[in-house]
């Protein structure tokens, strides 16, 4: 296996690993807050579940980038990389979703915790409460787009 392939696989692995770590952390703390609310007020289950799920999307974005990468470097399809230069391009193309996924999921998790607290006190403010963590999602989507555009344009 060429050094280029090693770099490309490293990029694919980091996309899922880092974004997944961020999502696991975010969903985890939001889940603790959601459990606290439901233990006192079970009627809020659906609302707090949605808020808990929001930080989980970064993990899915990371997985998507990993699949696209693997399907272009000869693992799930495409052609094998033979030069280091191309391998490094794949690695750097994967970094936006890997890094931004990790950081944004962490912050989205904390925002979700605060918004679960908001729903706990004022269930009728659920619509507004959804918007705050959704704003953090913007940056995860931007990094996903950059990663996909970069990967699909590597010749």
């Amino acid at each position: 296996m060429s050094l280029g392939m090693v770099f490309a696989i490293l990029g694919a692995a980091l996309s899922t690993a880092l974004a997944g770590i961020g999502s696991a952390w975010g969903v985890g703390i939001a889940g603790q807050a959601a459990a606290g609310v439901v233990s006192e007020d079970p009627e809020q289950f659906a609302k707090v579940l949605l808020l808990q799920l929001l930080p989980g999307t970064q993990g899915i974005y990371g997985l998507l980038v990993t699949f696209i990468t693997l399907s272009r470097i000869g693992i799930l399809g495409g052609t094998q990389i033979t030069d280091t230069h191309t391998g490094l391009m794949y690695l750097f193309a994967c970094l936006p979703i890997a890094v931004v996924g990790l950081v944004s999921a962490y912050h989205q998790g904390r925002t979700s915790v605060s918004c679960i607290g908001l729903v706990a006190k004022k269930p009728d403010q659920f619509g507004k409460a959804m918007l705050f963590p959704a704003m953090v999602e913007t940056y995860a989507i931007l990094s996903l787009l950059v990663s996909i555009l970069a990967i699909t344009n590597i010749k």
């Binding site: 703390i29 603790q32 606290g36 007020d41 607290g117 706990a120 006190k121």
Partner: peptide
């Protein structure tokens, strides 16, 4: 501090 997330969420409901 993060170990109190569950408890704080319960308290938010209790505050009502």
């Amino acid at each position: 501090d993060l170990d109190y997330i569950y408890a704080v969420a319960r308290i938010r409901v209790k505050e009502k």
